[in-house]
Structures are given as structure tokens and as C-alpha cells.
Design a protein around this nucleic acid. Sequence first.
DNA 1: ACATGAATCCTAGCATCGCTAGACAAGCAA
DNA 2: TTGCTTGTCTAGCGATGCTAGGATTCATGT
Lengths: 192, 192
Amino acid sequence: MSVQERKQRERAERERLIVATARELAEQQGWDAVTTRRLAERIEYSQPVLYSHFRGKREIIGAVALEGAAELAAAVRAATSAADGPRERVAALARTYLDFAARNPAVYDALFQLDGGLAYAQEDTPEPLKDAFAALLESLGEVAGDGVHPGLFTEVFWASLHGLATLTRAGRLLPEEAETRVELLVDRLAVA
Amino acid sequence: MSVQERKQRERAERERLIVATARELAEQQGWDAVTTRRLAERIEYSQPVLYSHFRGKREIIGAVALEGAAELAAAVRAATSAADGPRERVAALARTYLDFAARNPAVYDALFQLDGGLAYAQEDTPEPLKDAFAALLESLGEVAGDGVHPGLFTEVFWASLHGLATLTRAGRLLPEEAETRVELLVDRLAVA
DNA sequence: ACATGAATCCTAGCATCGCTAGACAAGCAA
DNA sequence: TTGCTTGTCTAGCGATGCTAGGATTCATGT
């Protein structure tokens, strides 16, 4: 049995290597540069090996996305738990979210921009995605205001952050005023 | 001279045909289906003809985007001018914007999701893009609130709409609650 | 120790993509 | 009619995602 277990470990290890390499390559040169050939070469295996782990490129993007969702959730929770009061928690959440998107553009793309073949807002949504939304909900639910459904408020706030993140990264918004925009958004949307 | 003029007219006509066909194909089957071969076949010319009008596929996407920007601006202006009072104008603007994105997903993608090789928020930004932003600013500037720069407020509001539009279309948000989300957004962000 | 069979991996190739070079034809000027 | 420009097409390049089929390795049973 030990032999099989070792092989299984090695296989899992190689899968992590694939995902990590794809992510690294995407952050360095963009997702367009993440071709199956380049990826295979970097992990020092042939192309078909990728397809013994993932159905195709989409699933690799999806794997990076799930990894990113977990990190985003953790970052948000760390930031909010270190802040005092609902207003400050929400501000910290917003800054952390936008910071994550700015620092990990490829991962953010994998999560929300590209097709990673993941289901959202459904029964079979992967756990990390649900949990990331839950992390937002924990702090945002506090400031939804009377008579406003916390989940719906979280969706709206999240959408606003997503819009700021993508438009900024696409060059549609100048990054200098980023902080001012966050202040405005938090002041208006969050009910103390 | 008349011969040259006729040729020029025909050339311009063919260029419109290319853009219209690309848009139609994109709306029908998505931008992935808009390949230079398929596009060439539909306009009943060979591939290289496309490259005598546009530098490449990117520029074709850009042309569709500009067309869309003009339509979006017109739709927003029509909706806002028909509404009474700042609050209602902004609500109409939001609904119209999201409706446009939902009804013309391919055009919206060309505008804000894909790389059409267009410059944004800069000196050499094409006129239709500037004008679309101006159309938003006209109504949103009214409800920015004291001491808040109208342009910055417009950016934030626009980003929120953009987030709602993209997340809804990507299946990240369920469309049933769309109207409720718009109400919430307008109520909180707009200062009467 | 050795043969067997399964698991594992790679070479080679397919269809398709965006894009371009070079041949060919059509139409204008002399 | 003869040249020349202008326009268009055929054919092809390199690169993409993905896959079939052969080769190799390796654990296993005798």
C-alpha cells in the first residue's frame, strides 16, 4: 500500500506545482502567456501530463481561482478583525479587497474575469467561493441598515468594489484617487 | 474625381459592414466565435480584406466598442431627460445602463471587458468614450453631494453599475433581485 | 530472477487561430 | 494598345488547445 500512497502524494505534489506555476506565469506575463506548452515546459513534463490532472486550461484557471478565493477570504478576515467598529471594519475590508486585486491581478482575473468553469451563486458552488462571500458578509452585514437584507447589501457593496477593481486595473480609472473613492463608497453605502 | 469618390464610399460602406457583422456574430455566438475567417466569410470577402480596414481583430473590437459607446450615451440621455427630479433621473440612468449591458452583452464586453486597444481616461481617449462618460456625469453630478467632486462621484457610481452589470452577466449574481439592488444603490449613493 | 500486465509518460499530429507574403486580375492613365 | 497602380485572393507561417497511440517504466506473482 505504501507504494500507492507515495505515488498519490507525488501526484498531488505535481498538481500543486502545476497550479503554482500557472499562477506565477500568469502574474509575470499575463494569462495569455500561460499556454499549455509553456506551462508543460516549466514544470518539466510534457503537455499531456496537464490533461491527466485537469480537463483543460479552463480547469487550471479554476484551480488558481479557488486558491485565490481562499487567500482573499483570509486577507479580508485578518483586516476586519484588526479594525475597531463597524465603519472601520468596512473601510478596512474595502481597502484590503482592492489591494488584493491590485497585487494579484492574474489571480483576480482567474476569479472574476476569466472563465474558470466554476459555478457561482448556486448549490454546487465550490466551498472557497462561498466562504469568500461569507467573509464579506460577516462585516458588511453589520452595516446593511434596517430592513435591508444583509446578503443583498453585500452583493451591492461587493459589486461596487469589483467595479472599482476592474476599471482601475483596465486603466479606466486613475489610481491616484483610489483612496478618495473608497472613502466615498464606504461613507455612502455603509449605515452606521 | 467621381470615380475615386465612389470607391471611397464603397470602402466606407464595407467597413460598416465589417463592424456590423462582427457585432452581430458576437451577439449571436459570443466573441470567441468571431474569428477572422468566419467574419471574412460572412461579409463575402477574403481574410486579408479585413486587414486593409483594421490593423487586426483588436481594432475591430474597438470599432464595435465605439459604436456601443455612442448608443449607450444616447440611451442614457434619452432616459434621464424623460425623468423628473434628480433622484428619478439617477434611477432611470442606472436602470438604462444595466439594461443596455444585459441586452447587448457582446457590445458591453467590447467596451469594458475585452481589449479593443482603446485609451481611457486620457488625452487621446476617443470622443464617443468621453461623451458616454459625460452623459453619466450630466445626471450624476447633480447628486454628488456637497464637497464631493462630481467627476469622482460619477466614477464611483459608474464602477458600481459596472460591477453589477458584469457580475450579473457572469452568473455571479442572480438577476431576480436586480431591481432591488438598483434601488439600494441609488438610495444610498445619491444625495438628494 | 524473471516474465507479465498495468500504469505512466512522451512523440507526433489535428484542427483552428491571427496574420502576412506574393501571385494574380481589374481598371485607370498615357 | 500598353504600362502601372490598385485591389483582391490563394496559400502558408507560427502558435494555440487538445488527443491518439506508441514506448517505457515499474510493481507484482511465480
